[in-house]
Nucleic acid binder design. Sequence first.
DNA 1: CAGATATAGTAGCGAGTCGCTATTATTGCA
DNA 2: TGCAATAATAGCGACTCGCTACTATATCTG
Lengths: 182, 182
Amino acid sequence: MKHNDSSQIRDLLERLSRLHASEDWSGDINPSQRAALAYLARANRFSRAPSQVAQYLGATRGTVSQTLKALARKELIEEVRSQSDKRSISYDVTKAGFATLDFSTAIDAALADMNIGDRQQLTKSLGSLLTGLLQKRGDRSFGICSTCRHNIKSDTGTWCGLLELSLTPVDTKQICHEHNGG
Amino acid sequence: MKHNDSSQIRDLLERLSRLHASEDWSGDINPSQRAALAYLARANRFSRAPSQVAQYLGATRGTVSQTLKALARKELIEEVRSQSDKRSISYDVTKAGFATLDFSTAIDAALADMNIGDRQQLTKSLGSLLTGLLQKRGDRSFGICSTCRHNIKSDTGTWCGLLELSLTPVDTKQICHEHNGG
DNA sequence: CAGATATAGTAGCGAGTCGCTATTATTGCA
DNA sequence: TGCAATAATAGCGACTCGCTACTATATCTG
């Protein structure tokens, strides 16, 4: 019973991401740095601290701390210290950082060649696999703010019932570490 | 047009493989070493040289050379020097090497929870994405020997029309670097 | 309110990845 | 026979990665 669907899927994922990673060195950064940068670019202002990046990427805080320092040295992100909690740091992506993310690899070209239906089907399958994986690991979902059970829309705007503060339209379209799909 | 299906699929692949990699350190080896070891365990006797591992993984020969030396130090694989071409080396996976590959992670558990149809669908989609990617990159397919256009079955056995030698039943079930699907 | 405990971030270690540029053996071609 | 291609490797510099401290806050609880 050596090569069933499960191990084949694992192998395919492994191989795809290795081939992708080998093309992912453009713009003076390595694949790990790019992954962290890409997360920061999509995360809302409550979710851009080292611990949260670490959780999202499944790495340790120590490793991520180093990676973020490297990105800051390259001026692709910048430190923002918090007033309220003097221990915590948040990182904002700079203009140069966003620019670095704007490129495409052979995998994008291959995806462009797939028909729309297959692509949507694949998005759905990978999404549900990820959800299952996160559940098994007991990890947070890191979903989009507007789809969260704590997100309350009213006439006067949008409110986060967990953090107890009002949300901007930008916030609600981004990834939140407190996201709970319910 | 920032977050369409394509970039979402790329993100999902990235995140799944990072989360998987973080669990992939069991048995005293790291994810890269495991990937090389897993390839060697599935490749036929004509396809176990450093150059071929490098092509399969999309890494450079230098990197792979180091990785294989590390695996050899740990006695999970062993060097086999070729008589015919004194430059080339091949690696065989040892018993301990095969044993190291025999474990499962949260992603296997998540896959086990999917229904069979979805799993087969996912296998198919990922397979065709990989095929497209390899084509874009101009890489070899590394398919199973028996599905190759050079594979010739006759009463007396199986023959490789490219390498011009006879194939054992084991050979034909393994990955070949000369594979050509036609 | 004063500990005790938890949390956020980091330094430093050791092993190893990774792209890169040589360098050393062959091998095969012209 | 010479010379370009090929196989493998060495060594470099930047970095990842899990790990174990360690510091500076925050929060909880008696």
